Computed example of a mutant assay.
Amino acid sequence: MGYAYVSLVVPRSLCIKFSSSYLLNPSVVDKRKRFRSTHYTHKHYYSYNFKIQQPLHASPVACAAAKILVNSDETHPSLEEGSEKLGIFSDSGFEDLVWPSPSDEIPFWKKDFPSWKMSLEVPVNVEMDSDVMHLIHVTAEMAPIAKVGGLGDVVTGLARACLARGHQVDIMLPFYECIQKELINELALITTYASYHDGNWVSTNAYRGVVSGIPVIFIEPSNHFFKGKYVYGGSYNELEAYLFFSRACLEWMQVTETQPDVIHVHEWQTSALPLLYWDMYHSLSLKKPRIVLTIHNMEHYGECNQEQLSKCGLNGSIYATVDKAIDDRTIGHNPERLSLLKGGIVYSNAVSTVSPTYLKETLCTGWLASTLIRNRDKFEAM
């Protein structure tokens, strides 16, 4: 199988996307050329050489480029000329993309959620698993209805992949006031119950709906949590809201006698759930589930003091130890501070991260590396 060398003019933001999704074995040329154009919001473009494995069926972009530039050393003096020859923006679907810019009047994280049409058909030739399980994802984000970053994409992708392999899958999500309800099918109230917060039992509604073919359970407390125009940045205390949500999900499972095989929590927002499960709900009623935590971004660690953790019904002081949830950065001068993400790592049955590369990075750098090394036997990559 041969190789073709192709020169492409691509936006800087797409360099990773091209190299990982469209082209094989990218090798950057020694000299980068930067171009400017008034036709696109994103101003900076690079000229790249790529080594493409043939046959060239991986991408319309790669195929179009190869037809023009195979065995050619030509580079393009301008973005307009390069994109016109290659058809990058006109033929590949990128012509509708608008790149975020610091000069945008509305920052990208405050704009309307992106939406897309997603096929609900199960992919063909998917191997079905013989050991079918019931999986519940507990998460702060889900694409496309409550998407801020990559977390929502990963959760939706994982859920659909497991459904395609024959598993029973649910997602539990806060019923944010800003959620695009028009994207939820078959939305209906299924349970009204009470969940604990700061000495009070808060009346809570649980709704069931279907989003992108995935069953979703929406948790809506009667207090001010999750109210506002955006997923994050509301007028409520986000840390306390997600502590409440973590317990409310377990409380719903107890009230409805739901016993999944796996509860899959994501990021710091739901990292208190493993603590609540093993130190409270496992002894009460939930005997079957095991807990998986996926770390998407190690930079967000869920800073929390003992008093705040106690508001969800746990005794925050018992977690202020090195082997549980104390924030390692503050040992000796701020023993009150805890890390929910560290506690989630310690208390989960399995811990995963989004790629083998990120797994290696988290084991070698960052203040949680020592915790991950101590728990290396249960730390894997997707």
Rank of each mutant, 00 (worst) to 15 (best):
T139M: 07
Q308V: 08
H42W: 10
A206K: 03
P274C: 09
L23T: 08
Y45H: 15
L23D: 05
C312T: 11
L368S: 00
V346Q: 03
T365W: 05
K311P: 08
N223E: 06
E238R: 02
L120Y: 05
V61G: 00
D96Q: 14
L359N: 08
S370F: 03
T204H: 04
T156P: 01
T353I: 12
S115Q: 14
S92R: 06
V10R: 04
S203R: 14
H137P: 02
L372H: 09
V6M: 14
A381M: 11
V138A: 03
Y358N: 10
I373T: 09
H266G: 05
V346S: 00
Y236K: 00
H282M: 11
Y277G: 01
L243M: 07
I179Q: 00
Y347D: 02
Y3E: 14
S90V: 12
L120C: 07
L183I: 02
P215R: 04
G82F: 06
V155P: 11
F113L: 04
F89Y: 12
Y358G: 05
A140F: 07
Y236I: 08
L250I: 13
D327Q: 10
C364K: 11
I190G: 02
Q308T: 12
S352K: 14
I214S: 04
C162I: 05
E307T: 09
A4G: 11
Y242Q: 00
R374W: 07
R34M: 15
E81F: 10
R160D: 07
A64T: 07
Y196Q: 00
Y347N: 05
E220C: 06
D170H: 09
A350C: 11
D153E: 15
Q53G: 10
I219A: 04
R165L: 00
A146I: 01
P77Q: 13
G157H: 09
M280H: 13
V61A: 09
F113S: 07
T204L: 01
Q269P: 01
K360Q: 15
I184E: 01
K43V: 08
S310Q: 04
T75D: 08
Y230R: 13
D104H: 02
H296A: 07
K227F: 07
I326M: 10
L173C: 00
N223I: 14
T256H: 05
L368C: 01
P11Y: 04
L239C: 10
H137M: 03
E303F: 03
F35W: 09
R329Q: 13
I331A: 04
D279H: 11
P335L: 10
A4F: 06
V154P: 00
M253P: 01
L239F: 02
S339Y: 03
L23K: 00
S72F: 07
H76Y: 15
V29Q: 13
Y193M: 12
L8P: 06
K43E: 08
L276M: 04
T362K: 03
L359H: 14
T192N: 12
S59P: 04
E127I: 14
A241Q: 06
R36N: 11
V148F: 06
L341H: 07
F50E: 04
S235F: 13
S285M: 14
I16Y: 14
S90G: 06
A64I: 03
L183V: 06
S19L: 09
Y207D: 08
A248E: 05
K342S: 02
D91C: 09
N125C: 08
R34E: 15
S119W: 08
V132L: 12
